[in-house]
């Protein structure tokens, strides 16, 4: 039962136009988001030593991809644990250095390409 006082529904052609415009906005966005969500990031230029990370310690770092995007959060957490609460374990920047001895090959390539300048290395030794 349609209300006689209600405004008339837009014409079919106009609805189609709106739908096409909305699709033009939403689809590229969705495609980008989905592409990022399902792609495995390829960063081939980082130095990768043989073996698994932190082998021989009480824990083993399994996922390099996670580390690539979250290492700074992880390191910051380790830093707070060590500096604020005195919980110092085997994991330190020095431990990273044992397998990844070159800062230029391990840290700087990504930081340079993303134009980041973390100030870790003013005080922490990493050649």
């Amino acid at each position: 039962m349609s209300d006689p006082d209600a405004p008339p529904r837009p014409a079919r052609g106009r609805r189609l136009l709106v739908a096409v415009l909305a699709a033009a906005v939403v689809l590229p966005l969705a495609a980008t988001v989905l592409a990022h969500a399902f792609s495995t990031p390829e960063i081939p230029f980082l130095e990768r030593p043989e073996g698994r990370c932190l082998e021989g310690t009480p824990f083993v770092l399994e996922n390099a991809a996670w580390m690539r995007f979250h290492h700074w959060e992880f390191l910051r957490w380790l830093r707070e644990e060590a500096v604020r609460y005195g919980r110092r374990g085997v994991l330190t920047l020095n431990k990273c250095r044992e397998c990844h001895p070159s800062r230029a090959a391990f840290c700087d390539r990504c930081h340079d390409s993303t134009s980041l300048t973390p100030d870790c290395f003013g005080c922490h030794y990493y050649p």
Partner: peptide, 8 residues
């Protein structure tokens, strides 16, 4: 517990 170090 070895991850961030021993609880003092």
């Amino acid at each position: 517990e070895g991850l961030g170090g021993e609880e003092p």
